[in-house]
Design a protein around this nucleic acid. Structure first.
Lengths: 208, 208
DNA sequence: GCGCATCTTGATCAATCGATCAGGCTCTGT
DNA sequence: ACAGAGCCTGATCGATTGATCAAGATGCGC
């Protein structure tokens, strides 16, 4: 046994490095955008060689799509749980359940909102794929629920699509821009799921 | 006279190329972020050599600051005009005047909101400069006005800073994410200053 | 023990990045 | 006419980009 390689590297756990790469890529895409994110930096943060990144995913573009798919698998799952848990409740309870689930998601991981707001700005091929793959169904389901709430006077009137995007904008921006809000307000404004839930309840919902 | 240079180039108008560079840089920074924007691409869109860009501005960072300064000069001017025009009116009228001015600004040029939401996400040196140079004063003035409106029951209750950012988020996102909203809704949702003004009035203001 | 698929690395590619430099052009002051 | 300031370009620098390739390491089937 030579002095080199004193630790024989443990056999690679299948899929483990792949997950680390996706996690690192999510952070990179969220903070620097698609073009700004460097595959070498992603690989470094994941603790692997840059070439491994292009072994698991054919290209930077494919890696981006893998990140998005994982993000929406999480989001859709949480939304389904929230909807199931509030089944049988009032429309207000069902609405608040998914609202709270989305707020919690944004609070835990602002990357989703950051990536989405980066990609939604220009009609690229990535945006078209994103809409077809994930956004259209989400939008339809949310607008149906909003329309239900409006019919019963629980949600303020207005185009459901604009209400939908207002909700996403308020909840997402609060956590995405937390560094700026902190700096501007001198840390006087608390940004917590409870605070944002109260904000949404006051602005989008009718009555107490 | 040789066959070359059949058109003697007109003498350069001082400051004209500089303005074209800033305009091109604004678009580039808004769509690709600071790192993602390439000085060569900016120069190409402005119709000048890349080296001219670093002649007028010492560095890419200095160019970015010039873009921001010009943007806020425009924004501050518009806000001052809106405030002056509604002087002597009710608090509601004064609030609606600056709200409308900001909405119109976002509608005409979504780049401001795009750049700000890119930079506000991470505590970089650029963000610190941005807050010290432009954001803090803006935030203070807006929150004072919002507090006035809340005291008179014109604005819904809540932390003024969160109301302030909710307003910016709704107005800015509607125009920034217009490509996505169009794709998702199948062009069914109109995104106009009037529509967003109605939306803000319904969500943030009390009563009709 | 042998072969093969899977996972991983390092070297290397052409392209592009921000930045620097020497030099040319036009106008102005004298 | 001549010198100098201001505006602008093309060539070029070292560094970094996404992507490709050959080869090493590991574990499973036979």
């Amino acid at each position: 046994m030579s002095a080199l390689s004193p630790k024989p590297p443990a056999q690679p756990v299948p899929g483990e490095a792949r997950e680390r790469i996706i996690a690192a890529a999510r952070k990179a895409f969220a903070s620097a955008g698609f073009e700004g994110a460097a595959t070498r930096q992603i690989a470094a943060e994941a603790g692997v060689a840059q070439s491994l990144l292009l072994y698991h995913f054919k290209s930077k573009d494919a890696l981006w799509r893998a990140v998005i798919d994982q993000m929406f698998a999480d989001l859709d799952g949480r939304m389904a749980v929230a909807a199931r848990r509030s089944q049988g409740g009032t429309v207000r309870e069902r609405l608040m359940s998914v609202v709270r689930a989305f707020i919690d998601l944004c609070a835990e991981d602002a990357d989703i909102h950051r990536i989405m707001t980066i990609e939604g700005r220009q009609p690229t091929e990535r945006l078209r794929w994103l809409v077809d793959q994930h956004l259209r169904d989400n939008h339809r389901a949310a607008c149906a629920l909003i329309g239900e709430g409006q019919a019963l006077g629980v949600i303020r009137p207005g185009d459901p699509t604009l209400i939908y995007y207002s909700f996403i904008a308020i909840a997402g921006t609060a956590f995405s821009l937390a560094p700026e809000i902190r700096l501007v307000s001198g840390d006087q404004t608390a940004i917590s799921p409870d605070a944002i839930e109260d904000l949404i309840a006051a602005l989008l919902f009718v009555g107490a």
